[in-house]
């Protein structure tokens, strides 16, 4: 399997490339009013609003550094079974790919870790990262989107 490798602080993370729609350059984000900690904002992707979470803000409590290598990973998020929505994740040093088997990831503590020539590689488990507040926000966000889309359809 192909994995996208990026960093959150000093830790290196891997995300299944099959879930990634596109790796985008850092864009200008609009704030979402009343959004919980971890949300960076929203932006318009091909005419559709996409909420964006900041992985550094979520895990380290500081926003991601603004560099060329800091990118928005646009992935297919499945908030409910059978419902696929776009979600952006801001990650630092999103510049590499790695070929790994899922079997190489072993359970260490509460995460899955694979050995790597440059230290260990943690599997990003989005479901564990999302706090209940963030889940609520995304649920409301996607629901209001479907409401807006219906009159047009």
């Amino acid at each position: 399997m192909l994995f996208l490798v990026f960093q959150v602080g000093a830790d290196r993370f891997a995300l299944e490339a099959a879930r990634v729609v596109e790796v985008l350059a850092m864009v200008e984000l609009q704030k979402i009013a009343g959004a919980p900690v971890g949300t960076a904002g929203e932006f318009v992707y091909r005419g559709e609003s996409v909420p964006v979470l900041d992985l550094c803000l979520l895990t380290l409590g500081r926003p991601s550094n603004l560099r060329l290598s800091t990118r928005v990973i646009l992935l297919r998020h499945e908030p409910q079974p059978g419902m696929i929505k776009p979600l952006g994740l801001i990650a630092e040093h999103a510049t590499e790919l790695a070929q790994k088997n899922l079997g190489e990831f072993t359970s260490v503590g509460d995460g899955l870790v694979a050995p790597d020539p440059r230290g260990r590689l943690r599997l990003l488990q989005l479901d564990k990262l999302l706090t209940p507040e963030l889940r609520d926000l995304l649920a409301v966000y996607y629901f209001s989107q479907t409401l807006e889309a219906e009159p047009a359809a």
Binding site: M26, V27, L66, R67, L68
Partner: peptide, 20 residues
């Protein structure tokens, strides 16, 4: 790629990606 983005970089990408 660790350098700071040039001026207007983010704005340009935002505009580019917003277009259908």
């Amino acid at each position: 790629l660790d350098s700071r983005p040039p001026a207007g970089y983010r704005h340009e990408w935002t505009q580019h990606l917003a277009a259908k």
